[in-house]
Design a protein around this nucleic acid. Sequence first.
DNA 1: TGACACATACCAACCGGTTGGTATGTGATG
DNA 2: CATCACATACCAACCGGTTGGTATGTGTCA
Lengths: 207, 207
Amino acid sequence: MTTHAPETARTRLLDAAVRVIREKGYHATSVDELCAAAGVTKGAFFHHFKSKEDLGVAAADHWSTATGGLFAGAPYHAPDDPFDRVMGYLDFRAALIRGTTAEFTCLVGTMAQETFLTNPPIRDACFDSIAGHAETLEADLAALIRGSTAERITAKSLALHTQVVLQGAFILAKAKDDPSIAGDSIEHLRRYFRLLFDAHKPRENTP
Amino acid sequence: MTTHAPETARTRLLDAAVRVIREKGYHATSVDELCAAAGVTKGAFFHHFKSKEDLGVAAADHWSTATGGLFAGAPYHAPDDPFDRVMGYLDFRAALIRGTTAEFTCLVGTMAQETFLTNPPIRDACFDSIAGHAETLEADLAALIRGSTAERITAKSLALHTQVVLQGAFILAKAKDDPSIAGDSIEHLRRYFRLLFDAHKPRENTP
DNA sequence: TGACACATACCAACCGGTTGGTATGTGATG
DNA sequence: CATCACATACCAACCGGTTGGTATGTGTCA
């Protein structure tokens, strides 16, 4: 599916939307501003998107595609043990926290909060993005839950909880203007997983 | 400094701001809309607040005061055991999740995300509100950490993590348009606390 | 091959309505 | 009569969206 990106006005607008909306939010970003950031005119904008809301939905989908590729190609899938894969995922998320706050936080978490009542189509696209990403964790989490003492937990619930922690961590990082607070919460989530799933394993032993 | 709360245009505007901004967000809410919701004129608005940003800061402070009273007067402080008080706090938070999403979510979490780059004064007021609330948990958490196997955790970090989970839960609840997802994450946080602090106590409950 | 019909991609100028904010009153209270 | 608390009237800038238009394909059929 990796066709060559034709660097058209549409993709330039979507890339600009991800960048600017993560900085300023959806409602604080004007169409004119987006056009200036993308280096296109307003006519081009409304040629490709029938409204600003339509662009919001497309930006959420664009985000899903981009992040989907990033996580699918990440090295944390390599280990044989699902526990190591899940911990590797959290390591990977922690390693992504660098640069300015706007650079590492989540577009769809930001937009969902702003649009949940004003623009339901955008909200739905945002939830699809978050839930779709959470689903990539479910198989490993299900394997961990099986054969642990925590069999009443569902993999889906736990996968969504990881996203809850990440989204909440981004909010606090923005509010405090300090990325380190996000790493702290990921560490708490790592500890939760260790307490849930690592107790039964003799990890010091070598086979 | 107003000890008594006269039903003045200022308080009506602040109450309206909490209500409307939780629904639509800060940037999507106009001054005219706020005035209409409060039943006052624009002249009254700019008599009490020198700008919309100034109202945002005042609304965050207003929120801190209102929620501060709510939590200070809540019954979860009664138990002698700090573990029971912390779990009571989470029960209380879970019980507050009812009605529409806009009714139970957090004003300052919403505003912080929107204003962290565009309106730093609002962002700072929002973080003060969250951090101030988190501090009310620190003494009990410090008591739990003392005399547990988790002595490397700081009470401050754990208190902020509770707010991370709650803020993240609100985002997912908005995105999914389903409050129950927030309760699920609070349950995960309860389980984390049980695993961390309840092991030494004779409790029959397993995860 | 060339000419016609049509589609896509984009542009500059413009529109009516809304925005945050201001300037100037006015009635009540002390 | 001075101050406060609010109301009325208004503004320039900006908002999302539309307009009429151009330049460049692209498929079709004689």
